[in-house]
């Protein structure tokens, strides 16, 4: 018994699973008059973690190359407002709008990737610059206002348009109301990222670039391309997250996604993916996403005051990362 436990804890995955179980135990202890045991609570937890989770998928790729992407929240914002303008105001069919947002996300992520891979800027600087630029872009596109179904017609008259059905569809639920579509989108992102990372040549190249860039170059890995693609992939994930965010808010907010990059990074790191690169996996990130998602929910159903939420979250993040470090060397 003790031996199996020790064996389980000797892997990053085992430790990440333990963290998650401990947070679940916390929820059972502080169950807010039984609210924690309701199915709806878990459905909502999963839905609330989904947007962060989608960002964390892209973030994992970047972190494995030894980089970091601070621009994910801002690119999410650009995508949310673009999607809202295209569908609400310009009446584009939704597949075209999705495609446009994904291309835009890939382009913005690609610029960061190009700056890191080709111009050799440090990822922190390149993506910090992109964070500013993309936030500015979101504000420029919208004129600083939220994009809603309430539009000013050419005559100057203000009309309330019908909410495009895609917004309701993304924010709806399947399996007799027990699984949000937003969560389904999140699972698809996780699956796609997992296939790339664990089964594709590009995934192996990501690890080798993050592990030792010089060795990777000498063994013929296209280092620049590999890095560039990691940031472009993160950009696409931001675009998807932005669409999911807009659908849930029924509007495009130019401030959407502010500070989300910090949560996405915390999710990746808590799972056990190393910030110094070369180590980590999608499974670990999934556990990290669930751990943080559940922690937020447990604090919320217990109506814990803001000051305590921040302190508890800080302490738990540190504990989790310390646990991960113990035998990881």
């Amino acid at each position: 018994m003790l031996k199996t436990l020790r064996k389980a804890l000797s892997s990053s995955a085992g430790r990440a699973a333990l963290e998650f179980l401990l947070v679940l135990a916390l929820g059972m202890a502080f169950n807010a008059d039984g609210a924690f045991f309701k199915l709806g609570t878990h459905r909502d937890t999963l839905r609330q973690a989904s947007v962060y989770g989608i960002l964390a998928c892209g973030m994992t790729m970047v972190v494995i190359t030894g980089g970091i992407d601070l621009s994910v929240g801002s690119i999410l914002g650009v995508s949310a407002v673009s999607f809202s303008i295209l569908t609400m105001h310009m009446d584009w069919p939704w597949p075209a709008a999705v495609l446009a947002c994904v291309l835009l996300g890939a382009a913005l992520g690609g610029v960061s990737g190009g700056l890191v891979a080709r111009a050799k800027l440090q990822p922190f600087i390149a993506t910090l610059a992109m964070q500013y630029f993309a936030r500015g872009l979101a504000k420029y596109i919208t004129g600083g206002k939220k994009i809603s179904t309430y539009v000013t017609a050419k005559s100057g008259e203000v009309v309330i348009k019908e909410l495009p059905s895609i917004f309701k569809d993304i924010d709806s639920r399947i399996l007799w109301g027990n699984l949000s579509i937003v969560s389904v989108i999140f699972f698809v992102c996780i699956a796609v990222a997992w296939v790339f990372l664990a089964r594709h040549k590009w995934g192996r190249e990501l690890y080798s670039v993050g592990g030792n860039e010089e060795a990777a170059r000498l063994s013929g890995v296209p280092v620049r391309m590999t890095k560039f693609l990691a940031y472009a992939f993160a950009g696409i994930m931001c675009a998807v997250a932005g669409i999911a965010q807009a659908a849930q808010e029924t509007q495009g907010d130019p401030e959407a996604g502010k500070d989300y990059e910090v949560i996405a990074i915390a999710m990746v790191v808590i799972g056990g993916t190393s910030l110094s690169g070369g180590r980590g996996s999608m499974g670990l990130t999934l556990l990290g996403i669930l751990t943080i998602g559940y922690l937020q929910k447990i604090l919320s159903i217990n109506a814990v005051p803001e000051a305590w939420r921040l302190m508890v979250t800080g302490v738990i993040v540190v504990l989790a990362v310390l646990t991960q470090r113990r035998r990881a060397k």
Binding site: D33, A35, G40, T41, D44, Q48, Q296, S300, I301, A303
Partner: peptide, 9 residues
């Protein structure tokens, strides 16, 4: 998010 918690409770 907070409203969802209130509704659950």
């Amino acid at each position: 998010k907070e409203m969802e918690s209130a509704l659950a409770r």
